[in-house]
């Protein structure tokens, strides 16, 4: 068990480094898939079969596929392979590393946390369903509002606008262009 966990944890860490270190977006996505898959094995080791399956279906299945589609479509349009810098600028990287290093130190030097016992049915379909529709009913419904907002946002920001304002004679108002005086027609 411990050996398996160690192996899977190392795989997850390697995947995490791969996500941020690879120069091609596709490689980053594949590394992300590795992270998500190893986490699914972790859930299995915790006897949470249902959560492991959800992890595979939702994250490894739906979300990573979505990422791949986005990358594919962007490349199909621009016709070139985007190369992103592999490392953050030090101004951003150092504080982030410092904060997480400090937290890691705090957690590692702190008192060991006793593992909490969970019920035998933990993470099964019945248990998850019961929790979702009794104790977590309100958060479940609130999450649907978050999804609704996401859909409204996708439509209102993604729908194609007519090429020019309906009556071009009257200047369209709106927020100023600020310091930069460029005015770019958005298609």
């Amino acid at each position: 068990m411990a050996v398996l966990f160690g192996g899977v944890a190392c795989l997850a860490l390697a995947g995490g480094v791969g996500v941020i270190a690879s120069r091609r977006p596709v490689h980053s996505v594949l590394a992300l898939l590795l992270v998500l898959g190893s986490l699914a094995v972790d859930y299995l080791l915790l006897d949470a079969q249902f959560i492991a399956v959800l992890q595979l279906i939702i994250y490894a299945g739906a979300i990573v596929v979505l990422f791949v589609f986005v990358i594919m479509l962007l490349h199909a349009r621009s016709g070139e392979v985007a190369r992103v810098p592999a490392v953050l600028p030090p101004a951003a990287a150092i504080p982030v590393c410092a904060v997480f290093g400090l937290m890691l130190l705090v957690v590692l030097t702190g008192a060991a946390i006793a593992p909490a016992a969970v019920g035998p049915a933990f993470g099964t379909v019945q248990e998850v369903g019961r929790a979702l529709f009794s104790r977590f009913l309100l958060p479940f419904e609130a999450a649907s509002i978050v999804l609704l907002i996401g859909m409204i946002g996708a439509v209102v920001l993604g729908k194609r606008l007519p090429p020019s304002p309906p009556d071009a004679g009257r200047p369209a108002e709106g927020p100023g262009e600020g310091r930069s005086k460029r005015r770019v027609e958005l298609r």
Binding site: I152, G153, V156, L161, P165, P175, G176, V184, L186
Partner: peptide, 21 residues
């Protein structure tokens, strides 16, 4: 999340303005 998601979309809602996007 409900609060900030709505505000993200509202901030960008003037789509003809580059600054708003």
């Amino acid at each position: 999340e409900i609060l900030s998601f709505s505000l993200y979309v509202l901030a960008a809602i003037a789509r003809r303005s580059r600054r708003s996007l």
